[in-house]
């Protein structure tokens, strides 16, 4: 059959569901092992954060798409959580190998890290669904002019939902791509576009934490000699 945009989107969704079918909604035993190895066990905080962000996400999803779609928002969030735990485990395995250390207490107790990682997982889910359900005309005429409701739920929508600085989201993108080999070429391109948007625009907003870091860096002075301008 011809490879239409709708068919491509349906194939991506099918693949995503297949990939995450065997993944768990809860941290695996391996992940729990990493939590237990921490100086401060983050298990409880992680579970609480996932629960809170789930409520916020479902509420905002229903506001944007329609109150009848609360269940759909919960389904999307559930897929995002599966991906979040899976990528977290892969990242920690890779860090253990790189650093020869099993105690990631600082990282695993960072709220910015978890919120960014979950936001990135959800962005992958939401971007996969763009061009599917709501483009079939069920949700009004906008479906026919290319301005699907779901397009509005793509990046940077998730930053607003989680009140997450773009600068923090940026930090997880590269490690996320490295840790999740099943990402399609289109999805990697999408995440790259998110990176560019942050670099060129979102990270330079007045409330960005980047300015404070630049200030700190300026006060501490250069750590090493700057490279020549040509480089």
């Amino acid at each position: 059959p011809p490879h239409t945009p709708i068919r491509a989107a349906m194939n991506s969704i099918q693949q995503l569901r297949f990939d995450l079918n065997s993944a768990q909604d809860q941290p695996s035993d391996v992940l729990c092992g990493y939590f237990k190895n921490c100086t401060v066990d983050p298990s409880e905080e992680i579970a609480k954060r996932v629960d809170q962000l789930g409520q916020v996400f479902s509420c905002r999803f229903a506001q944007a798409v329609g109150q009848g779609c609360v269940g759909l928002g919960k389904q999307r969030f559930c897929l995002g959580v599966r991906l979040y735990y899976r990528v977290m485990e892969a990242m920690l395995k890779s860090e253990e190998k790189r650093l020869s250390d099993k105690n990631f207490s600082k990282l695993l107790n960072s709220s910015a890290f978890h919120t960014s990682l979950l936001a990135c997982a959800l962005e992958v889910i939401m971007a996969t669904y763009v061009g599917s359900t709501f483009k079939n005309g069920d949700f009004g005429s906008s479906a026919f002019d290319g301005t699907s409701v779901e397009t509005d739920l793509c990046f940077p929508w998730i930053l607003d939902v989680f009140q997450l600085p773009a600068f923090d989201f940026y930090k997880v993108i590269e490690s996320f791509i490295k840790a999740e080999p099943s990402l399609s070429r289109d999805m990697i391109k999408h995440l790259e576009r998110c990176e560019h948007l942050i670099m060129e625009h979102l990270a330079w907003r007045g409330d960005s934490p980047m300015f404070e870091l630049l200030q700190q860096s300026h006060e501490e002075g250069p750590v090493e000699q700057a490279e020549p301008p040509a480089t």
């Binding site: 860090e95 600082k106 930090k171 791509i177 391109k189």
Partner: peptide, 21 residues
Amino acid sequence: NQDYHFGLEDHEGISELFDCD
């Protein structure tokens, strides 16, 4: 992931990026 331009050096990882929290 071949098309993606990886910028992190080998000695950098997610731990270092969230170290300033």
